[in-house]
Design a protein around this nucleic acid. Structure first.
Length: 209
DNA sequence: GCAAGGATATTCT
DNA sequence: GAATATCCTTGCA
């Protein structure tokens, strides 16, 4: 157990890039925090994917539906959805309100609250605790009740930052899709062991998508 | 270190 | 009925 908290500061909605792809890149190296009565869970975001407007693989592609309304909220709201009948995915809305777009959190490097996460994923080694979108939500106990939650409040489940400035970011195509496979919309922290899937660079760090 | 196959719920590219 | 933003186990190299 850690006595001293990491100096994570909440991200305000105005701090977030409005553009979906820029937001997905921006979130690499930021922090996902969950304050609970039992203590704090936190981790460093090391892998994301962008699901921009007009992308046929986006859950918002066919317009607003009862299940995808959170993707149409102002930037920084959680969109939680079940895939393959087993795994919940944690996403965050992007673009202006009324516009359906978002980014998917694919992996985090667990930092605080390790005991909490290990209890939810018995037997998993530290490296695999939150490596993959389904594992991430499992380890952190994130389910459908978080759909629509505002991640910019600095309370409950929220996003934050420690380091200022831009992190080095790798880019590849997204994972698990059968369409739009060519688009370089997956972002990750180069060299991190907590990234799921390929860690070979498509584009050089700091290049724009 | 891969590759293949099964489980499972919701939507309808 | 088919597809899906996945994970786990088993088997093989």
């Amino acid at each position: 157990m850690r006595n001293q908290r990491l100096p994570i500061l909440p991200l305000h909605r105005d701090d977030l890039p409005v553009d979906t792809i820029e937001l997905a890149r921006f979130m690499i190296g930021k922090y996902l925090v969950h304050d609970l009565p039992e203590g704090r869970i936190s981790g460093r975001v090391v892998e994301t994917e962008a699901y921009p407007v007009g992308d046929s693989t986006s859950h918002a592609f066919m317009g607003r539906r009862p299940h995808n309304g959170s993707m149409f909220l102002a930037p920084g709201h959680a969109y939680v959805r079940l895939t393959y009948g087993l795994s919940y995915m944690l996403n965050m809305s992007a673009e202006a309100e009324q516009t359906g777009a978002g980014i998917l959190f694919r992996a985090i490097e667990p930092l605080e609250g390790l005991a909490f996460m290990e209890a939810r994923r018995p037997g998993a080694p530290l490296r695999d605790l939150a490596r993959g979108p389904g594992r991430l939500t499992m380890a952190r106990g994130i389910g459908p009740s978080f759909d629509g939650h505002d991640l910019c409040t600095g309370r409950g489940l929220w996003i934050g930052v420690i380091e200022q400035g831009e992190a080095s970011v790798g880019v590849t195509t997204r994972i698990g899709l059968s369409r739009e496979m060519h688009r370089p919309l997956r972002f990750f922290e180069p060299g991190s062991a907590f990234v799921s899937g390929p860690r070979k660079l498509l584009l050089t760090p700091h290049s724009r998508a």
